[in-house]
Amino acid sequence: MILIGRTPYATCQTAANVKALRTKLFTTDGYEPRVRPIDDQSLPIAITVDLYLLAINDLSEVSETLKTTAFLGLEWEDAFLRWTPASYNKTEYAFWPQVEMVGGSKGIIMDYYEANSGWDIIDSSWSVDTETGDSTINFSIRLRRKPLYFMLSVIFPIIALAILNLCAFLLPNECGERAGYAITVFLAFAVFLTIVSSSLPQNSESVSLVAIFLIIQTTCSTLITILVLALLRLGSFDEKDEKVAVPRVLTFLMRKLKWKSRSKCSKVETEKDGKMHDSQSSLPDASESKVSRIEMPTQLHENRLFKEASTVDEFSWKEVVVFLDVVLFVIFAIILTTSLLGCLVGAQRNAVN
C-alpha cells in the first residue's frame, strides 16, 4: 500500500503569513473554484498532463490489454491565485492542505486481521520517503505460503512421477510396452509442467525452486525416453540378419565391473567337453590310430579358433543392454536425489532469510 501526499513548499517564516495569504486569496478576492481560472474566458486553459508509472501488473497478449499502477500529474496556471511574494515575507509557494506523511509507532496493526488459509504473515514494516519531492509512506508485508496443500497437490506428485520415470530401466528389453511407458511418463511431466506454470508468477528475475525441479525432471524424462528407444535398437543387434560386434569400450567396462557373462560360462563348458573328447580320442585304438593322428591337428586348430571367437564375443548385446539399464538407473537416481536435496536446501535457506 502506498500513500502519496505533498510536502510543505511554503517558504514563509510564520503561520501569520500563510493565514494572511489564504485570507487574501479565498476571502478578500472571493476565489470561486467553479469559474475557469483564466482572465480571457474565451481562451482554453493549457494543462500539462504527466503519467507517473509505478508498476506493470498484468499483460494479456491474447486480449491485448495492459494493467498498470500509475497516477496522473496535472499542472496549470491559475490566474486568480496571484500575489506579491514581498508582501508575505517572500512566500513564493504554498499548498493547502500542507501534508507530510509520518508513520505510526505500530506500523501495520493486525488486531482485526483474520488468518488466511494459504498464507502466513511473518513480517511487516513501513518507511517514509521524501527524496522525490513527495512525501511517500510505504507499507510492506512479507508472506510465507503454508506448505501442506502445496506439498500434497504439487510436490508429492512430481516426486512420484520422477520415481516412476526411473522404473523404465527396470522393464525387460523384450517388453513391447517399454517405449510406450517412457513416453507416457514424459507426457505426464509435460502436462504437470503446464499446470504448475499457470499457478506460479511469470517472473524472469527469480524462478521458483518448484519450477526448477520440474524442468530438471522433464529434461531427465526426455533423455530417458531417448535412451530407452536406443536400448531397444541395441537389443536387436543379436539377430542373425544384423549381427554387430560389441564395442571394446563396453566390454572393458563390463569386465572392470565384474559383470558375469553367460557366453563365457558356455565357453568353459564347451572347453570341458572338448577336453573330455580329446582324452577319449587319445585312448589307444589299433584300428583307428592312423586316422586319429591325422584328425588331431585339425581338431586342435578348430578349438583354438573357437576360443578366439568366444573371446571376441564374450558378451552378447542382450547382456550389454541389461548392463546399461543398471548403469543408467543408478545415474538418473543420483540426479533425482541430488536435485531434490538441492531444492530442499534452497527452500530452507529462503525460509530462514
Rank of each mutant, 00 (worst) to 15 (best):
L344H: 05
K106N: 12
N303V: 07
L148K: 15
I2K: 15
I109W: 06
E174Q: 07
K267C: 14
L227A: 11
T184C: 10
E308V: 12
I108D: 11
E295I: 10
R293S: 12
T218D: 10
T298Y: 06
V291S: 01
N116F: 03
I215S: 07
F237P: 01
I141P: 03
P284R: 06
N57M: 11
E242Q: 10
E114C: 01
L72V: 08
T23G: 12
F169H: 02
E205S: 12
S42L: 01
W119D: 07
V185K: 01
E295N: 09
R142N: 09
S266D: 15
V330H: 03
P44Y: 15
T130E: 05
P8K: 11
R142S: 12
L148I: 08
N89Y: 00
V128P: 09
L200D: 05
R144T: 06
A55C: 06
P297H: 13
L231Y: 00
S117L: 14
I38F: 02
D241R: 00
M1L: 14
E100L: 12
V320Q: 08
V210F: 12
S199P: 07
N89K: 06
A179V: 11
S117Y: 03
I212Q: 12
V99I: 15
F169P: 00
K267Q: 14
K290L: 02
N57D: 07
L148N: 05
I4A: 11
E308D: 14
S292L: 14
